[in-house]
Design a protein around this nucleic acid. Structure first.
Lengths: 334, 334
DNA sequence: CTGAAAGCGCTTACAG
DNA sequence: CTGAAAGCGCTTACAG
């Protein structure tokens, strides 16, 4: 391997000053087209790559952003984060940033705080928001720019989210139009805002359609196997004709529960879900589901963050769209 | 927020030189216990945090390691990587490193190469190895220290792996002792070394037991729905009495296929799998499976890498253990 | 045991 | 449009 070139080497070789070389590279400050081109040609030819650490030190910027994800993820979350990360990374790279991963728990922000103390990141993207917004408050106390993926209870926070409320509202409305009336909503922890928003959309659909909401069919305080099984039992007992699962993981549990109880999908019970992930692929019946563009979500949140880091007046709140696909799981056969 | 302290501030406040402060912090070089303690006390009191970027520049080290994962992951992979990452991160932090994530494809090493060009990482951990070992060769050409999680075809590479061959061998042996004879092996792409190793362990079990291996029951060239379904059909046709799935994802597909064909587990067909992940939780029958300690794998590979970065003569190849749990899916009821 | 000084490789006021 | 010089905040030979 050849020795790494420095800006100094280039300056000497080209008989100009380091300042000039630096300007030619960054494009900042006045510089004649001629010199710029000469420098560029030299760089191209000798495959010069600036030392990003030196740049960082001089500019007091790390050119890294942190993607903060919770330690306690479910499998659905995981694929979600992964796709998000993919989008984030794409935009980050385009803007000359790299992405550091940080795993936190509400009671353990040590990893994140270490990253900040060490000045390793210029900003952060929060993968999950909760109603306690501890992480948001922490980041603000550290004066670190950040964006949340998912809505925050704190409206002053930059946030990029799917429009979960509208999505759940539209899904529910479609199902109601399809003829079911006693729709159950199962799963989720209303500590998380995403679940609150879906619930709100669900309730609103009944209001808009002037139909009676069945409170006794709402089970939104858990995701565990036991919780879901129990919810399914209750739903059946209370006359549900359709179940909306809060995510694909819960959906799989619901499907298994129904199967064990000998209840046929869709004729005896309709099923719909959120995310339309890999998990539904193995289901016997194609499942009606809302899907989101997680990669886009990552891209937009990353762009928003970088704009903020660069003081470019980012938009405060962005809501992305969704797609609803009605499939066999909610189409009764005559 | 108060202004960030620098080593210079401390030196002035304490009436010593920067050199001394630096030494007190790093522990390198001779320094009297008294001054060391004074510096330490000051640091503690004023919550001084060194600027890691300046340190990086002075030492030409980034104190970052890259975790390289493939773009084209399956869901099983994903949870695997996640746990691994968790272990890696733990050890990294203990050693003052942070972890950058890089996603690559065999035909697109751009992200990784960018990270290296920008000197953003001091070493890398490869999450997946393939028989083409393109990434290994690339990293070597860049003279970057690295470790593979999983075995490499290139024996000169530092590698940390589960002992897949022994694991599959022991699993197969146990099943044979249990009385089944016509064991099928389904799933996996022998381009990946892990799958080759398992296959080898599988074959060896038959040799050791002096039993006839059924070549027509081996289907190790794919993971897709179609491939697995077809393999299951063939296996049934060829008289299999037990199926070993190459991973939990394949296992779920196998279970679904069997169910659709009305074949009962375990009485008509035994089932066993690898990883024992979340995916098996929703199965109706508890599934016999080999499980690994992915977090440990991450920890060990990270330690190995850091040792290499620090020129501390790491071990060339480490094989970690496994655990086999026999469950209902392979216990015929009388 | 301690310090003055040079260096890591960039950026950026400031002066021309 | 261009350059000399100072600075970002550390580390580390070298000398004492």
């Amino acid at each position: 391997m050849e020795e790494k070139l420095t800006i100094d080497d280039i300056a000497k070789a080209l008989n100009v000053s380091k300042t000039t070389v630096s300007r030619a590279i960054s494009g900042k400050g006045r510089i004649s087209e001629g010199t710029r081109a000469r420098v560029e040609a030299y760089i191209e030819k000798h495959n010069y790559k600036p030392n990003s650490i030196a740049k960082s030190l001089a500019e007091s910027k790390s050119y890294n952003i942190g993607f903060v994800m919770p330690k306690d993820f479910t499998i659905t979350d995981l694929t979600f984060y992964q796709k998000c990360l993919w989008g984030i990374n794409q935009v980050a790279v385009e803007n000359d940033y790299d992405v550091l991963v940080s795993m936190v728990a509400p009671d353990d922000l040590s990893q994140l705080s270490r990253l900040i103390e060490n000045r390793k990141i210029d900003g952060a993207i929060l993968g999950r928001t909760s109603s306690t917004n501890v992480i948001e408050r922490f980041l603000r106390s550290q004066a670190l720019p950040f964006v949340t993926v998912g809505s925050s209870v704190d409206s002053s926070v930059l946030q990029v989210d799917n429009d979960h409320e509208a999505a759940c509202n539209e899904l529910t409305t479609k199902l109601l139009k399809n003829g079911v009336r006693n729709i159950a909503l199962i799963g989720g922890d209303t500590q998380y805002i995403v679940n609150r928003n879906r619930k709100r959309g669900f309730i609103r659909a009944f209001e808009n359609a002037d139909l009676q909401l069945h409170e006794e069919l709402i089970f939104t305080e858990g995701n565990s196997q036991e919780y879901v099984e129990n919810a399914v039992d209750e739903a059946i007992k209370n006359g549900a004709d359709c179940i909306i699962a809060i995510d694909d993981d819960v959906c799989v549990k619901v499907i298994n529960s129904l199967e064990m109880r000998g209840i046929k999908i869709p004729n005896e019970m309709g099923i719909a879900s959120f995310y339309n992930s890999y998990l539904l692929e193995n289901a016997k019946v194609p499942v009606t589901a809302v899907s989101f563009d997680e990669i886009k979500l990552g891209q937009v949140s990353c762009k928003t963050l970088i704009d903020q880091i660069n003081q470019e007046e980012p938009i405060k709140k962005v809501l992305l769209g969704y797609k609803i696909e009605l499939k066999a799981s909610t189409m009764k056969q005559k």
